[in-house]
């Protein structure tokens, strides 16, 4: 948009003065205008206002408080820890399924894809509540374990780090699978044949060719999941305990209950900046994918 600005007639060739609608920047600008205005009005302006108000009212006080308070550091740590565990969990469970999707026949592939996306037909508040039924002290799993005599006491499965991670993995796993599957299906399958005919067993062909080529997709899928996990609050609110409070929950409490908008604004900005930095990294990994020819053909 800005790059396509008309730089005026060049000195070498006196360009004829074009009517407004024929100039190179005109059409893109007009076409993008509704979207840009919408984004500016509903996203950029409120955020700018929030940053501005925060700084005008109290200066950097909010930020200083956030980074010096044990409570907020604990919240940051919670968020980081839960997001990392969730990302790894999604990767470990999602990679084999995504890989299977690339090797099975068309019909089975369609079936698995339907099963993968099926949970989205249910609201995830409902799905999160259902974990209470499964993981509670008298939930299905504990009943079975105690009933079979495998454990004497019901295991503490709910309202802790474990249940929060399980709940978040369940919500984010389909995204991980679809992202990985998208990246994997761009890998040329003939490369595996080339590896096999030149002496690699299936497993070695996977390890030396498919897996390295899938890494770019793995990185970007993990970043996507990690960024999504950073902003979660319903799952930890429903099936976590106060010890698992994440950033978004704190923002909610600060803004709605304590009416401490300064800290809430500062915390929001920290989350926003972290997400943006990760998005920039994500974008770079995407480019590496292209360099390797992942999206050719």
């Amino acid at each position: 948009m800005a790059g396509s600005q008309d730089s005026g007639p060049s000195p070498t060739s006196p360009a004829p003065v074009l009517p407004l609608f024929q100039r190179s920047w005109f059409a893109p600008t007009v076409l993008l205008a509704p979207t840009l205005l919408w984004l500016i009005f509903f996203y950029i302006a409120p955020i700018a206002l929030m940053v501005w108000r925060g700084l005008m009212d109290t200066g950097l006080q909010g930020y200083i408080k956030i980074f010096s308070s044990d409570i907020y550091l604990k919240v940051f740590w919670n968020t980081l820890q839960i997001s990392i565990i969730t990302t790894i969990g999604c990767l470990v469970l999602g990679y084999p399924i995504a890989f299977a999707l690339t090797v099975v026949g068309r019909r089975l592939q369609a079936l698995i894809l339907v099963l993968v996306t099926l949970p989205y037909w249910l609201d995830y508040v409902v799905r999160s509540y259902s974990w209470i039924v499964l993981l509670g002290r008298r939930g299905l799993i504990n009943n079975i374990l105690v009933g079979l005599g495998i454990v004497d006491q019901p295991l503490p499965l709910l309202f802790n780090l474990f249940s929060v991670c399980v709940g978040m993995i369940q919500v984010l796993l389909p995204i991980m699978i679809l992202a990985l599957f998208g990246a994997m299906s761009r890998i040329d399958r003939r490369l595996m044949l080339a590896a096999e005919i030149h002496g690699a067993s299936r497993w070695r062909a996977f390890r030396t060719v498919f897996f390295p080529l899938s890494l770019a997709g793995v990185y970007s899928a993990c970043l996507l999941i990690f960024i999504s996990a950073l902003g979660f609050f319903i799952v930890p609110a429903l099936i976590g305990s106060p010890r698992q409070t994440m950033i978004t929950q704190s923002i909610l409490v600060l803004a709605e209950t304590l009416l401490n908008w300064t800290d809430a604004a500062a915390l929001s900005i920290v989350l926003l900046v972290a997400t943006m930095v990760l998005t920039i990294i994500y974008d770079r990994f995407f480019n590496i994918d292209r360099l390797w020819g992942g999206d050719q053909r």
Partner: peptide, 14 residues
């Protein structure tokens, strides 16, 4: 123990 040249070359891009 065969060598093969593919139409698309199938070189390992990485």
């Amino acid at each position: 123990n065969i060598g093969m040249v593919f139409q698309s070359y199938a070189l390992f891009p990485h």
